[in-house]
Write a protein that binds this DNA or RNA. Structure first.
Lengths: 200, 200
DNA sequence: CCTCCGCTAGATAGATCGCTCTAGTCGGCG
DNA sequence: CGCCGACTAGAGCGATCTATCTAGCGGAGG
């Protein structure tokens, strides 16, 4: 089926955008990487490169969101989940030779002031991640407000650690951010337990 | 003097790169924004756009490093410094209509896998920030190792919060990351005080 | 079988890219 | 003054950019 071509275009774009950004990737390079005919790109994405960019953001965002969900399993220890998540992120960064970090951060920074539809797509993805992680922490027994703050802190720490890690070619920032985030979750859990005990 | 032209080119480039990235900014746009003759760009930067990019990274990095230093004054409370720094960052983000966040993060992500000299420039800048902030925390009474971890966590938290904040058009991530970082510094200071008391 | 249409295929347009080149201006110095 | 080097000024090169256009392939439905 021909839909496979569209999928290949999206996947190749996702990989290229992640490594070299949106503006730094040409449509010719995309179709070459995807082994797709040039005309197909404009057949599936009549809105051109910008529409492709938006769909790639949402696609990559959904994949990475599932990855987050895979670590923060309801009912299991959120402290261990946080630690494991950052450890896995550090390993993936290292194994890809510091190329594959966040799939949308590069594009997000590029387009936040230049393309409203793409910026909106990034915002939707980030909000999805925040809400998802937050929900899992709530299920882990933390108060809603505290969970949201932790989720934002955690995602911000990861994104920033990726920025530093890619430039420094080191996993240290991811490891350090992971330790700090894990500690923050541990304290939140402890504080909540203490509150429950006090209440009875 | 003619050096003023070079300075205008660097400053205009810094602003454009920060908002739309390196690949998304053309040299024609740079000289137009700087009101500089086109030929001057290649007179001052014979290495072309890449050399300009590298110098802009180092220039912007130095400016922002001074900003960090201005908040973390030796002898003053590092907890308050952290809080004030993030508060100021949130205000700057809001006032620039979510355009001016980190001056080099966008470029750092773009070039980390595509230009070794520019990637190295970003690494040098980040290392400078980390060492600078770390040194200030040491002067504030914290152990060296703990200071480095805090500095990395703080800078990563800020960078990530900028990524989220620009896309979401909200200062919430910066505020939340600031609160988390401030709390981490507060705990480190408290722990160090306790250690000192125990030792006598 | 034939027609229709989703899709493939790529040539090509028109603009823009980074960059080179020559010509010219200007101030300072011998 | 005469000269020289630093800088200005922009035309223009080849390459590459995004996007459009026409032409044709090939399977499904009438």
């Amino acid at each position: 089926m021909a839909a496979a071509t569209k999928e290949r275009i999206v996947e190749s774009s996702a990989e290229l955008f992640r490594r070299q950004g949106y503006a730094g990737t040409g449509v010719k390079q995309i179709v070459a990487e995807a082994s797709a005919p040039f005309g197909s790109l404009y057949h599936f994405f009549p809105g051109g490169k910008e529409q492709l960019g938006e769909e790639v953001i949402r696609y990559s965002g959904a994949i990475y969101g599932q990855l987050i969900d895979a670590f923060f399993v309801p009912g299991e220890d959120p402290v261990a989940a946080t630690r494991n998540f950052f450890t896995a992120a550090a390993a993936a960064l290292h194994e890809s030779n510091y190329a594959d970090a966040c799939p949308i951060a590069t594009v997000a920074l590029e387009v936040s002031s230049t393309s409203e539809p793409m910026r909106q797509a990034c915002a939707d993805v980030f909000n999805g991640w925040i809400d998802g992680a937050s929900e899992r922490l709530v299920q882990g027994g933390l108060p809603r407000k505290r969970s949201r703050a932790l989720a934002i802190s955690m995602i911000a720490a990861l994104e920033g650690a990726f920025v530093l890690g890619r430039a420094l070619r080191s996993t240290e920032p991811v490891e350090v951010a992971g330790a700090t985030s894990t500690e923050a979750v541990r304290e939140a859990v402890a504080a909540q337990r203490a509150r429950r005990r006090a209440r009875g």
